Simulated scan of single mutants.
Amino acid sequence: MSPPPLSTRQRLGRTAAIGALLAAAAGGLLYLSDRLGPARQARQFIDTLEASGARHAGYRRAHSHGVCVSGWFEPRPALAQLSRAAMFTQTRIPAQGRLSIGGGGPEAAEAAARVRSLALQLTGEDGQQWRLAMNSFPFFAMPSAEAFLEQVRAQTPDPATGKPDPAAIAALQARYPSARAFAQWARTAPWTDSWANTGYNGIHTFYFVDADGQRTPLRWSFVPLAEAQSMSEQQRQQAPANYLSTELAGRLAQGPVGWTLQLQLAEPGDVLEDPSIAWPQERRTVDAGTLWIDAMQPQQGGYCDGVNFDPTVVPDGIAISADPILAARSAVYAQSWNRRLQEQRQAAEDTP
């Protein structure tokens, strides 16, 4: 059963109580990371996103529209063979997460978003956590953190038109083949009619480390158990703003919805540190478990609201790769979380 939603006063009170401690810790971490550079780059990302209209006080700077979900994950024996993570020996691992859409603000129309996302936090009996941040696209549009920042800037709307400059987008795609490939995926991939029948991909390489210290490079996806149904452009345009949330609530009223965790194993020669390059589909895959979601609640005041779904938070038995985009995401998520926390603290202080 999912935790009951917090009232506005409870949420703001909780935020005010822990805000000073967390802000101090975050400030110290940001000071240290500033000396190494990632935090400065993360601020550039967030500043650019905010300049494009992505600042909504108290909300995430990207994928701000979403819902909290909860359920459990059932590992299969193959998972414990690849990784020594203690949680993978459990029969059931509690899962809390968030389903969201890419781009737009908190009131964005759900069916109109090309990208959908699934974030998860799995917590083992030993207290270790595995956080996953996945998207519906099969590969990343940019090959480096610097190129990613170029993309964010190119997609910033022109104040005169309210839309990105087509010339800037064209120039970006001319420089990066992966950007052209991503645009092709966006034009041609089916638009499924539910969060529940959408697949979500990790896109980054991680290493699973077994009891003997053997490291297996792999990427993962969550493959839906629900049958995919596509939406036409007319259906997307006519769908209510909260179409996906309403549709998911209807499904959950009938029972849990599930996804299979599918691990794609690397072979010699596969590019491990560039998420813009997808591995060949014929690579060996392992079905490693099933995620079940059986409850949802609004994100504001919900249990997912205060979670930073940093994909570099992993338990012993999983190791991150040297993928620069993965490192950049971690820094950007921390910057977004810190600003959101400060805004929520300020709201709590302003509440009589």
Score class of each variant (00 low, 15 high):
S7Q: 09
G13V: 01
L21I: 01
L22F: 00
Y31A: 13
A42G: 07
R43D: 10
R43H: 14
Q44G: 12
F45L: 02
L49T: 07
E50R: 15
A51H: 12
G58M: 11
Y59I: 09
F73K: 09
E74S: 13
P75M: 05
R92L: 12
A95L: 15
G104Y: 13
P106H: 11
A109G: 14
A112I: 09
R116Q: 15
S117T: 15
L118I: 14
L120A: 08
D126E: 13
Q128D: 13
Q129C: 12
A133I: 07
P143Y: 06
P143A: 01
A145I: 08
E146F: 10
V152D: 03
R153Y: 05
A160G: 07
T161W: 06
A171V: 04
P177Y: 02
A183V: 01
P190C: 02
T192R: 07
T198G: 04
T198Y: 00
T205Y: 02
D210K: 02
R219W: 04
V223E: 13
E227V: 15
M231G: 01
A239H: 05
A241S: 14
R251A: 09
Q254R: 13
G255A: 10
T260F: 09
L261R: 03
Q262I: 02
I277P: 02
I277G: 02
I293N: 06
D294F: 11
A295I: 10
Q299L: 12
G301Y: 03
P311K: 01
V313E: 03
D316S: 15
A319R: 10
P324I: 08
A327E: 10
R329T: 15
S330Y: 01
Y333A: 08
A347R: 09
E349L: 15
P352N: 12
